[in-house]
Each structure stands twice: as C-alpha cells, then as structure tokens.
Amino acid sequence: MTNTPHGLDGASLLGLPEAARQQHRITKKMLAAQFEDQAPADARLITKAVASAQLIGILRPETIQVPEHRGTERTVVDIPVLEVVLADTTTVADRSRVTELVHRSMSKPVVLFALLPDGTATLSLALSHVGRTDPTRSTSVIDAHVLVPAGQIETGALQLDRLDRTDMWALYRDLVRTAAADGRPASTALQAAEAISLRRGLTDLETELITVVRDARRAKNQQRRIELNTQARTLRAQIERVRDSLYSADRDHGVT
C-alpha cells in the first residue's frame, strides 16, 4: 500500500480497526462507468488522471461499532475508504475535478486519499446527497467539497475513536469538520459545512494577499504602493478573523 506523509497510510490516519481494513483494486472503468453515457468528458478525465485505485477500508456499524444512519434526506450504512494514485501529468485543476467525480460516482459518503506524483497525499471529503434526478439513485450530488493536504493535519486528529460516534453520518460530518480545520477546529459548535466555507474563504484571502504583496513590491508609483500595502493590511486582518473562526487558539497560524 502506498504511504502518505510521515510514514502513515490512509488506514492508519483514520485508525481503522483490522475488521474495517480492505485491500481490493478498483478499476478505472468502474470509477468512470457512471459518466460514460451522460458526461463522456468526465469519464475520459478519470481514465486519464487516475493511475490506479484501491479500496483500503469500509466503515460499517459492525466494523467500527457506530450505528447506521437512516433519515429523510439520506441513509448511511457504510462508508468506503479509497486510495487513488493520480497520474504524473494531472494538472492541479484536474486533481480537484477528478476527486469530485469519485465522490459523485457513488451514492454514499466517501473518504478519499489522493496520492500525488510528488509523494504527498491529499484527503478529499464531500458533503453530498443521493442524486434525486438519478433514476438508479446510484450517484451523488456534492453540496460542499474540501481538499486537505494530509501532511498538515494534526497527528491523531482523524482517528475514528475521537470523532462523533452518534451514527455514521454524524461521524462523517465530524471527519469533514475536523479535516477542514487541519485537525484543530475552533470549537465543537463549528459545523462541517461552515468549516468548509471558512477554509475556502481563507484560501481565497491568502491567495489574494500573495498577489497584493507581490504587486506592492513591483509597484514603481509610491501612491500605488501605499494603496496596495493598505489593502494587504486589510487582508491580513480578514485572514486573522477567519483563522480565529476556523482554528483553535492553541495552534500557531501566523500571517506572513
């Protein structure tokens, strides 16, 4: 099995009990099958971007001692854990797209570890519901999706015995919430969808700050440089507020 950073594989990051561990190859054709008729371009992307895939675990009530979830919106009786190795030629945009497609290809929540060509791993999680317009009810619609570098998640934070064990859906939502905050969510009141929204907002602000700081350094006009530096200070303050909402106070998230 391919290892994620720090010598841990996906099963170890989750603390999967032996009863929940699997090791079965998944063909690219199986992943692409749901899209071949209605979205052939998506099927081709999966075929091109995925080098290999395997099932490394299945979370079930009998394997992790967490009750199933049956509600009006969704039923969660098992959660597959997958590892997908992405091809060397895959672009950053395609990586995000192909992980979303894997989530969409199944009618249940999925824990997906995407192993990148540089040897690092990204954890992909999605809040989703079964596609209501799908007559087979075999695919999902994504409500919110998050990608988190596995190497920056707080050690031990994603262990299943640390998460909400009320039922399978509560466990998955807590996994999403915790991962979106790199293993250090600000409070127990922080919800999964809110954590994803905050993380996306933080990423956007940090990207904008990088651009503004770069432009300020290059600006030849002093007034323009002053304006950009003022904008950078405003962005840093916004970033700090979002970080306070997302992360716990005992983690160092200094702004550069």
Rank of each mutant, 00 (worst) to 15 (best):
Q238E: 09
R236T: 10
Q223H: 15
K29G: 09
V146S: 02
V176L: 03
A53L: 06
T230C: 09
A170S: 11
L190N: 00
H69W: 10
A179P: 03
D161W: 13
M1P: 15
D94W: 08
V110F: 01
V255H: 06
R218V: 10
A249V: 08
A157D: 08
A53C: 12
Y172M: 00
G10R: 13
L205R: 08
L13T: 05
S187K: 07
G183P: 03
D204T: 08
L86V: 03
V102K: 03
T207L: 14
G7N: 10
E208W: 13
L8N: 07
A179Y: 00
A53F: 02
E83D: 07
E62M: 06
R214S: 15
V81P: 00
T230N: 14
S12Q: 07
L55R: 14
G15P: 01
S52R: 14
Q223A: 12
R21M: 06
V110L: 02
H129E: 15
D182N: 12
P40D: 07
S245V: 05
P109N: 11
S248D: 14
E227G: 12
R74L: 04
A19V: 10
L45A: 09
T188A: 13
V102G: 01
V255A: 04
A232D: 05
Q22M: 07
A20N: 03
A219L: 12
E83G: 06
L123H: 01
E18T: 12
P185E: 09
E18R: 12
A157R: 03
R162C: 01
S52W: 09
Y172D: 03
I46G: 00
V176A: 01
D167P: 02
T188C: 08
R241V: 14
G57E: 02
T256F: 12
L202E: 00
D37C: 09
V81K: 01
N221P: 08
T63E: 12
D94A: 08
I64F: 06
V130E: 11
A87F: 04
S197T: 07
E208Y: 11
R74S: 04
P109C: 13
A51Y: 12
P67T: 08
E68R: 13
D134Q: 11
A114V: 00
S248A: 12
L158W: 00
A179L: 01
F35W: 13
